[in-house]
Design a protein around this nucleic acid. Sequence first.
RNA 1: GGCGGCAUAGCCAAGUGGUAAGGCAGGGGUCUGCAAAACCCUUACGCCCCGGUUCAAAUCCGGGUGCCGCCUCCA
Length: 468
Amino acid sequence: MGVQMYNTLTKQKETFRPIEEGKVNMYVCGPTVYNYIHIGNARPAVVFDMIRRYLIYRGYDVQYVTNFTDVDDKIINAAQEAGEDVFALAEKFIDKFFEDTSALGVKRADIHPRVTETMDDIIAFIEALIEKGYAYESGGDVYFKTKSFPDYGKLSGQSTDDLQAGARIEVGEQKQDPLDFSLWKRAKEDEVSWDSPWGYGRPGWHIECSAMVKKYLGDTIDIHAGGQDLAFPHHENEVAQSEALTGQQMANYWLHNGYIQIDNEKMSKSLGNFVLVNELIREHDPQVIRFFILQAHYRHPLNFNSELVEASGAGLSRIRNFLENVRHRHRTSADFADGTEWLKKIQTFKGRFIHEMDDDFNSANAITVLFDFVKEGNLYLQEPHTSKEVLQEVMNTFEEWGEVLGLSFFAEEELLSEDIEDYIEQRVKAREHKNFQEADRIRDLLKEKGIVLEDTPQGTRWKRVSSL
RNA sequence: GGCGGCAUAGCCAAGUGGUAAGGCAGGGGUCUGCAAAACCCUUACGCCCCGGUUCAAAUCCGGGUGCCGCCUCCA
């Protein structure tokens, strides 16, 4: 059956068929870099990173491109307010983007093109559209002639007639039709601008993605993704521009993630409920935030607040505890038992994981498979004899799943300092002599140092508790 | 007005025709010197409401209600 994904274009789940066997070209709309990213920006970054990782896991050679909109009204305004240089401000928030997303386990794209570095291609793209009669210059602006593209609306399910009703022409715009949208905007006084056949100006809102997709991935790509709100007008306009120019379908599969809501409302400046990732990761383990995001299906709306994240963290701890305990058992016990049955069972779990992920990247259900595994695995750990091979395979499996989900389930291998080793040794002796008062004293003392001790039939194990 | 999404236990969240996954929180128990971790039992006679189709519906159809979003920059 293979990987199934919900395609916004056809409004149904489809079996994924790449253009070229074994390869995937994937483009995800990136942020406008005028501020720190918020949790709403984090969701597409995380879920499409997960999808990318999964496709790689499934054997595809994935070429993944995410852009930065590094020149735009919002950036210009933000720079003005801060009294900073436009380019310096963009540069700064690109750095911050990488900082925040990598904390969330998001890998870098293969290519991160920027508008300012794609200017020639954008201008050439617009010129070609004018030549073909799909666009026109008007007072230094260039507009796309929406009605000249018959399929307009096919992605978002809007009809030009319906759109016509609500459309308006902004003051100062010189469109022939209210539905036309801008490809090139004439520069205002003292604004950053680039030279073009239509005078100084900068690209409109949607053209960058069309130009970048074409430049880096080709006329038709496999997957184009972004937030639900981008479907219209952004992606619709991209389709119009690209397909008008090339005559080819722009992308075979369109994926859109659902919104994150704060207390069931959209994040917005007016409501003042923006949650910046930057601030969030000071209060929560970023891995927990990622885990929280992946515990919901990527297309569904997801409500967000601190309590929910913490509840999620307890779940992640369960998995981590299990693996720490597996590791301890692996270190401390000999290889007695026959592992054949369990090795088979692990394969079954792996199959279930793939089955769930194949179904439109259902990471929520995939994580359920992990919990089911943990449940059975904990029972295994209680058996008097375990197989070292099985324990190793359990760790390998979670390592593999962790790589797909972008989660690290294992604490860093760590050696304790000698004095703490000594304490643990002393406590073992104290317990042997039934001096429980002393044993408890040492346990409390280490707990204050962030080391929690747990006594098992295989000896005392320790773990470090997170400071977060 | 047009387009779309959502509604499942105290909370989060799967499930899209076969008799309600999983996590968190709560309660009870087992194990333990005591803990911790873990395990066992327990928490929706019912999936927003009303009709209908079916041997069978949370799942399909019709009608309602509520919430959220897009249509303007927005992930």
